[in-house]
């Protein structure tokens, strides 16, 4: 396969984790501008584990996801008491705090004669486990795709067991959800943990794909994009945010003719879709219609 195509597809896959992370919180009724922080935490945690501690890849990536989920739950415990704008600001503040902390985070150890590990604002290079194991970009793309499909299948399972519908209840009207016997705070913390874990998983995979990460990559714009993916693609199904990523990275960033205007076109697209289809292209009405049709 063409190396450029492989790299574009890998990016689409990697940012789909971040988009799904923000999407889960959108379903739970919260806008988070801070999911890039969990992406960063996953990237750094997994990178340190494999490059500095010499853990195997699977354990390192899993560790990144677990840490993302844990910190997500920990932050949500107080933050879930906020709603709307206040929640958005709280998540934004946390993400900027994380980025600022990474800027001064030095943890370099001697690995085979080289100083390896995060070096503050200079970033964190030599996350080379995947390359040293001889895994080419093509097979690594297959790893990303498999994990993404597994996550989508898991969300499908959750939907079938009615978990997603309960999360939507909490998101739409927490008071009514409580009236119906749903434990709202527990759901909000659970959603934040799942979202943090997903972003952490994506971050760990990203670090091993890029081999180099630096705090500046995890800026607010990354988080804003993550939210926009769900809003463009649609809130009705897990495929919605992934469609959003496809449109942004697949179409706007990768078509070289459009790349220079990416931000302008993307911003305009978000505005138009929010006016015409407030809940995105694949919204709940469409999904319900497709489901009703499929059952016939």
């Amino acid at each position: 396969m063409d190396p450029y195509l492989v790299s574009v597809l890998s990016n689409i896959g990697l940012f789909s984790f971040l988009a799904l992370s923000a999407w889960i919180l959108l379903l739970g009724g919260e806008i988070s501008f801070g999911q890039q922080a969990y992406f960063a935490i996953g990237a750094y945690a997994a990178g340190i584990a494999s490059a500095v501690w010499a853990w195997p890849f699977t354990a390192a990536v899993l560790w990144g996801a677990v840490l993302g989920a844990g910190i997500g739950a920990l932050i949500a415990w107080p933050a879930a008491r906020f709603t709307g704008v206040h929640y958005a600001i709280a998540t934004l503040a946390f993400a900027e705090l994380t980025r600022a902390a990474l800027n001064v985070f030095h943890y370099q150890r001697d690995v085979d004669g080289y100083l390896t590990g995060p070096d503050g604002a200079n970033g964190f290079g030599d996350i080379r486990w995947v390359y040293e194991a001889g895994i080419e970009p093509g097979p690594y793309l297959a790893v990303i795709a498999t994990l993404l499909l597994a996550v989508i299948a898991l969300i499908g399972l959750a939907a079938r067991l009615d978990v997603m519908a309960q999360l939507r209840m909490v998101g739409e009207d927490p008071i009514l959800a409580a009236m119906q016997g749903v434990r709202v705070l527990r759901w909000k913390i659970g959603a934040a943990a799942a979202a943090g874990g997903l972003a952490g998983l994506g971050g760990g995979l990203y670090a091993h794909f890029a081999t180099y990460v630096e705090p500046a990559q995890f800026s607010v714009m990354t988080g804003v994009h993550a939210v926009a993916y769900g809003l463009i693609g649609g809130l009705g199904t897990a495929l919605g945010p992934i469609l959003g990523v496809l449109i942004d990275i697949g179409l706007l960033e990768s078509l070289r003719a459009l790349a220079a205007y990416r931000m302008i076109v993307f911003g305009g697209l978000v505005a138009i879709i929010l006016i015409l289809r407030p809940r995105g292209l694949l919204d709940e009405t469409l999904v319900a219609k497709v489901r009703a049709w499929a059952r016939r």
Binding site: D162, Q180, E284
Partner: peptide, 20 residues
């Protein structure tokens, strides 16, 4: 007050199963 973005059946079905 209803869950406007859930189906009619889900409004009832979930309510029941959300019950501890």
């Amino acid at each position: 007050r209803l869950f406007g973005n859930l189906t009619v059946a889900q409004n009832l079905w979930v309510a029941q199963n959300g019950h501890e």
